[in-house]
Simulated assay, not measured.
Amino acid sequence: MKAYLFLALAIGFELFGTSMLKASGGFTKLLPSIGVIIGFSAAFYLLSLSLQQIPLGIAYAIWSGVGTAATALIGFLVWKEKLSLNTVVGVLLIIAGVIVLNLRTVKS
């Protein structure tokens, strides 16, 4: 169970790093640029800890799927980016893929 906590924290830090990447203005702003380094470093470290107990394919599917969906939502809510039908359908397909991968693991 601790592995899933590490995975959730990895996702949180990845979202922070991605948000700071947008705020950094192409690494022209110092504090957001430092936030990028901290966010992604922590995310990959925590992801590596989760991989001690969670299979790579499952952990990465959850990490990237939740990260993609949450990043699209953050882009819409925080950065006022447009949320098109294609974006919504794409995110739903990613979520469906993560669910299918996890179902395969449960049955194994």
Rank of each mutant, 00 (worst) to 15 (best):
F44P: 01
F44G: 01
F44Q: 04
F44M: 07
Y45L: 10
Y45C: 02
Y45N: 05
Y45R: 03
Y45S: 01
L46E: 05
L46K: 02
L47R: 01
L47D: 00
S48E: 03
S48A: 06
L49Q: 08
L49D: 00
S50K: 04
S50N: 02
L51G: 00
L51H: 02
Q52V: 07
Q52Y: 03
Q53R: 14
I54L: 03
I54R: 01
I54F: 06
I54D: 06
L56E: 12
L56P: 04
L56M: 14
L56V: 15
L56A: 11
G57L: 11
G57D: 01
Y60V: 10
A61G: 14
A61Y: 12
W63H: 11
S64C: 15
S64I: 11
S64Q: 12
G65F: 01
G65V: 00
G67S: 00
T68Q: 11
T68E: 06
T68N: 01
T68H: 04
A69L: 06
A69R: 05
A69T: 12
A70I: 07
A70D: 08
A70G: 10
A70N: 06
T71H: 01
T71G: 01
T71M: 10
A72K: 06
A72I: 14
L73S: 05
L73V: 08
L73H: 07
I74T: 00
I74K: 02
G75N: 07
G75F: 01
F76I: 09
F76M: 12
L77V: 15
L77R: 13
V78F: 15
W79Q: 08
W79L: 06
W79N: 01
K80A: 15
K80M: 11
E81W: 14
K82A: 14
L83D: 04
L83G: 05
L83A: 04
L83F: 12
S84E: 13
S84K: 06
S84D: 13
N86I: 15
N86C: 09
T87P: 05
T87D: 03
V88P: 09
V88G: 04
V89T: 15
V89F: 09
V89K: 05
V89G: 06
G90Q: 14
L92Q: 05
L92Y: 07
L93H: 11
L93G: 08
I94W: 07
I94C: 07
I94V: 10
I94P: 04
I95C: 09
I95R: 06
A96T: 13
G97D: 02
G97M: 04
G97S: 01
G97L: 05
G97V: 02
V98N: 05
I99R: 13
I99Y: 13
V100F: 15
V100W: 15
L101R: 05
L101M: 14
L101V: 09
N102D: 04
